[in-house]
Design a binder for these strands. Structure first.
Length: 298
DNA sequence: CTAGTCAGTGCAACACCTTT
DNA sequence: AAAGGTGTTGCACTGACTAG
C-alpha cells in the first residue's frame, strides 16, 4: 500500500467527495476514482458508499481511515526524526487553539520556544473548542489548546489548568462595586458572549439551563477581542478567564469580578494531543515547553 | 541504448441523481 | 424538463523500471 494511496484515501474521507478531493490534490477525479477502486479491489470489499452528492465511508472505510491517519502522522514523525539525525534541528509544529489563550499565553510560549529552537517553524490556527478537538482528531493539528473540553475517547489531555470565568467590565460599572457576582446578577445588565461551539459559551449555556436562566446577549460574537472591546468600552459585562484579560486588568482598563456559580469556577484550559500518537521531536519539545510556560503566566 | 512493460494520470464522454 | 453536480469508463500519454 503506497503512501500516495493513503494520502489520496485520507483526502477523500476528509472531503466526502472524490471530485473535491481531486481538486485539493491537484489531480483528475478519474485518477482518484481509480486509486480508490484499486484499494477496494486490494481489500476485497467496498470502502465507500457512492451517492449522487459524494461518497460516504463504509464501516471498512472508517476502519481504514483510522489506520491511514495514524500512518500519515507516523510518516511525519519519521521525517522529523530523520531531520534531527541530520542535525538540522528542523521541524514544524501545528497548533490549534481557542483565541482566549493566545494573546497572553501561547504567543509568549511560542516566542520563548523559537528563541531556543530557531529551526522549528510553528503554525497557529484560532478557532472554537469543538473545532480544536476536531483538528487534533483529524490530524490537522499536532497540539490543541481548548477551553473546558469534554472527555473524548481518542483525545489525550496532557495538561489541564484551572481557569475560572470572571465577569469582566470597566471599573466604574455599577456591578463592579460587588466583590462577587452570580451569573444571574450579571444578566440584569447588557452582556456579550461567544457564539455556540465556544467552550465559554457551552459553560454559560449549561449554567443557564441548571439555574433556569435566560441568556439574551446584547452581543454574540466569534471574536474574543470583540468581547474584550465590549467590556472595555463600558457597554456591559462579558465572561472571560483572567488570563485572557490579564493586560487590560493590569492597565486598569477593566476589572474581573469573581463569579459564584460553581460550574463557571471549574472552567479549565486544556492542552491536548491525539491519543496513542508518537509525537515528532519538535512537537514533543514544544509540548514540554508549553507545560512549563503556561502555568507561570497566570 | 533500445524496446517492452507497468503504474499513474488526464481528457472526453457517459450515466445517474438532485435541484431548480 | 433542463441544468448542474457526481462518480465511472475508455483511450491515450508519460515516466520509471527492466531485460536484452
Amino acid at each position: 500500500m503506497s503512501l500516495t494511496a493513503l494520502r489520496y484515501f485520507n483526502e477523500v474521507i476528509r472531503a466526502g467527495s472524490i471530485r473535491e478531493a481531486a481538486d485539493r490534490l491537484h489531480i483528475a477525479p478519474s485518477a482518484l476514482s481509480r486509486q480508490m477502486r484499486n484499494l477496494e479491489v486490494t481489500f476485497g470489499l467496498p470502502l465507500f458508499e457512492r451517492h449522487a452528492r459524494g461518497v460516504v465511508p463504509t464501516s471498512a472505510g472508517e476502519l481504514y481511515a483510522r489506520y491511514a491517519r495514524a500512518a500519515l502522522l507516523d510518516e511525519e514523525r519519521i521525517n522529523s526524526e530523520i531531520d534531527d539525525l541530520k542535525g538540522l534541528r528542523r521541524g514544524h509544529v501545528r497548533i490549534c487553539s481557542v483565541e482566549g489563550v493566545v494573546a497572553n499565553g501561547l504567543t509568549h510560549a511560542i516566542a520563548t520556544f523559537r528563541k531556543r529552537f530557531q529551526g522549528v517553524s510553528i503554525s497557529l490556527e484560532i478557532t472554537g473548542t469543538e473545532s480544536v478537538i476536531t483538528a487534533v482528531r483529524d490530524g490537522d493539528a499536532d497540539i490543541g489548546v481548548a477551553f473546558t473540553s469534554s472527555p473524548e475517547a481518542d483525545i489525550h489531555r496532557t495538561m489541564r489548568l484551572k481557569d475560572p470565568l470572571f465577569a469582566i467590565m470597566i471599573a466604574g460599572y455599577p456591578a463592579a462595586r460587588q466583590r462577587r457576582l452570580s451569573l444571574s446578577d450579571t444578566l440584569q445588565y447588557p452582556v456579550a458572549v461567544p457564539r455556540k461551539h465556544f467552550g465559554i459559551r457551552t459553560l454559560l449555556d449549561t449554567r443557564c439551563r441548571t439555574a433556569q436562566l435566560t441568556l439574551n446577549p446584547t452581543l454574540e460574537t466569534n471574536s474574543i477581542e470583540a468581547l474584550r472591546g465590549f467590556a472595555r468600552s463600558g457597554c456591559g459585562i462579558t465572561y472571560l478567564p483572567r488570563l485572557t484579560v490579564k493586560r487590560e486588568i493590569e492597565a486598569g482598563q477593566v476589572v474581573a469580578v469573581p463569579l459564584t456559580d460553581r460550574e463557571l469556577q471549574q472552567a479549565t484550559v486544556d492542552v491536548c494531543v491525539l491519543k496513542g500518537r508518537t509525537l515528532p521531536m519538535a512537537t514533543a519539545g514544544f509540548l514540554n515547553h508549553l507545560h512549563a510556560t503556561l502555568p507561570t503566566l497566570r
